[in-house]
Write a protein that binds this DNA or RNA. Structure first.
Lengths: 179, 179
DNA sequence: AAAATATGTCAACATGGCTGACATAAATAT
DNA sequence: ATATTTATGTCAGCCATGTTGACATATTTT
């Protein structure tokens, strides 16, 4: 609260990276993040379990849907798992017709990833579930909530990844917009 | 954006639960949550792996630290896992002296859970890591960021759990404050 | 022709979920 | 006083999804 008082008095200089050891853990945000994320991923989990899919399938489907034509290597980097782990779930998604792989045009070693219509429908269904929760939250919070949430979440990302993540989101928006 | 315009014109009624099907997925928040949460839990993961512990241990240690004297049943409900799953990690935490169990005073069937000084130190170390990230974020965002984040995250929790979560956080704050 | 790259695959293992069955001690109900 | 319910623990085994290491194939680059 003394920080808030100081801010109100206009006494805060905000140096680039103060990073002093925090006096007290910020328990409320730590715990709220845990519960919010749990519920956030819980909605899709129910749908996925009926298809005998798990979160791993969801993540793959999500990013392939958002980045049509992405390389396997790109997906590995985003998910930060090994190719063996990816291989298992990707194979199931391909075998069951949610994802297809196409030979790269310039580089024929690449297997570019695309969702099928069936895959897109599932990805959308899951995203809509999560969007309903987000929309509900924003509607409780009033205008400016979306911007505030975006800024908060962005600031929580590792600063060295941040730009890349934002670029990726912008690029994906673009890619889906023209479809 | 028409919603925003309508809001500015003061034309929005905000009925209790509109929940109309959303036109478009809110991709930015969906993805930012994914990346923010990944980094948020990533910090502790590094420390834990050196102790041959995982996220499961972290969750148990966290909640026991925050709720000293809690019953096993309470922990199971918060974590939403089976007692067999809990048993495995809890046993390791007890065997290695991070957690102790004491017979309940009134009900001697209960095994009330407490962190040891060693356990508290680890819990604190992990919480400080996460707090550093949160503090860094808040300091980039300026005053009001904490309150905005709290409101957003709270609104993202299932409405039927929300009260319980907030009560739990408040109760835990109290419990730790007197220690 | 040789080396590097993109991808796939086999085998084995670890973690942390799960179910089902059963055991024990203590509290509660009849 | 006995029977039942409750809180907890435990054994055994299965599943999903992460890991490492080794190796295969096709293609591009040097």
């Amino acid at each position: 609260m003394s920080a808030k008082t100081a801010a109100a008095a206009g006494l805060t200089e905000r140096p680039a990276a103060p990073a002093a050891a925090p006096a007290q853990p910020i328990w409320d945000i730590i715990e709220l993040l845990f519960f919010a994320y749990r519920d956030f991923v819980g909605d899709p989990d129910e749908v996925l379990s009926k298809l005998a899919f798990g979160r791993a399938h969801h993540r793959v489907l999500h990013f392939v849907n958002r980045n049509p034509g992405m390389k396997v290597a790109d997906l590995l980097e985003i998910l930060n798992i090994t190719k063996q782990s990816l291989g298992r779930v990707l194979k199931q998604l391909v075998d069951q017709g949610f994802v297809v792989q196409k030979e790269g045009a310039q580089d024929r070693r690449q297997r570019l990833l695309f969702v099928t219509p069936k895959g897109e429908a599932l990805a959308l269904k899951l995203a809509v579930l999560q969007t309903e929760r987000i929309t509900r939250a924003f509607s409780e919070l009033g205008p400016g909530a979306h911007e505030a949430a975006r800024r908060f979440l962005t600031a929580m990302i590792d600063s060295d990844n941040r730009e890349g993540v934002l670029r990726q989101i912008a690029r994906a928006d673009h890619a889906k917009a023209r479809s």
